[in-house]
C-alpha cells in the first residue's frame, strides 16, 4: 500500500472478540480516547461461542492509525482477537426505526410508496403513530429519513453497524486455535 493510501481518511470496521467481562468496553474506548479518535458506532453482543463477546466498532481514520489501534486493542489482556476491515471485506447492516404520525398515511399514498420502494416495512401501527423499520447501510437509512422528514417525522433512531467478514473461518475454531497455540494473537492479521 502506498503511503498516500495509508494516510487517506476513511471508514474502518473493527471486529473485536473478548472474554465476557465487566469493564471491557471501557478498556476498548480508552484506546481511542487516548488518541482523540471518535468512534462512529459501537455494537456489543454475545458471539456464537459461549462466554465470548463481540464488539463491532466503526471509526473514521487512516490505515496507519487503525493498524496501531488494532495492535493496542490486541494487547489488552482480555481481548481474544481484533480484526480490522475495510468496507469491501465485510457484509454489514444497520437497522433504523422511524416514528411517523399516522395521519401522514391518511393524506394520500406517498408515504406508503416510500416504504414500499425503499424496502422498509411497517413494524407497528398505533392510533397516533406508525413505526417503520429499515435495515441497510447508513446512506440508505439516511435517504429514507430525508424522504420521511417532510411528513412530520416524530423520531428517528439508527443502530450501530453489525458486520460479518467475508472470510470463512469460524470463531469457534479461532478460539480453539488460540487456546492450543503459543503463537501470538497480536500477530494474527486476518480473520
Amino acid at each position: 500500500m502506498n503511503s498516500q493510501k495509508k494516510q487517506e481518511i476513511r471508514d474502518f470496521t473493527l471486529s473485536v472478540l473478548t472474554e465476557d467481562k465487566a469493564g471491557l468496553i471501557n478498556q476498548l474506548t480508552i484506546v481511542f480516547t487516548k488518541r482523540k479518535i471518535n468512534i462512529n458506532s459501537l455494537n456489543v453482543s454475545n458471539s456464537e461461542v459461549a462466554g465470548v463477546s463481540r464488539f463491532t466498532i466503526v471509526t473514521r481514520t487512516s490505515r496507519d492509525m487503525i493498524d496501531k489501534i488494532v495492535k493496542q486493542i490486541r494487547k489488552l489482556i482480555d481481548v481474544l482477537g481484533a480484526f480490522v476491515y475495510e468496507d469491501d471485506q465485510i457484509f454489514y447492516q444497520e437497522i433504523a426505526l422511524y416514528k411517523v404520525p399516522t395521519k401522514a398515511f391518511i393524506n394520500g399514498n406517498s408515504v406508503e410508496n416510500l416504504v414500499r420502494n425503499s424496502g422498509a416495512r411497517i413494524l407497528v401501527v398505533e392510533e397516533e403513530h406508525i413505526i417503520i423499520e429499515k435495515t441497510g447501510h447508513s446512506k440508505e437509512t439516511h435517504d429514507l429519513y430525508q424522504k420521511l422528514e417532510p411528513f412530520g417525522l416524530l423520531e428517528f433512531i439508527r443502530s450501530g453497524r453489525v458486520a460479518v467478514s467475508k472470510s470463512i473461518r469460524k470463531t469457534e475454531a479461532y478460539i480453539k486455535g488460540l487456546e492450543a497455540s503459543n503463537s501470538n494473537k497480536l500477530s494474527i492479521k486476518d480473520f
Partner: peptide
C-alpha cells in the same frame, strides 16, 4: 496460561 494473553511470541 491465559487463553487471551500470549506473552511470548513465537
Amino acid at each position: 496460561k491465559i487463553r487471551s494473553y500470549h506473552p511470548y511470541p513465537e
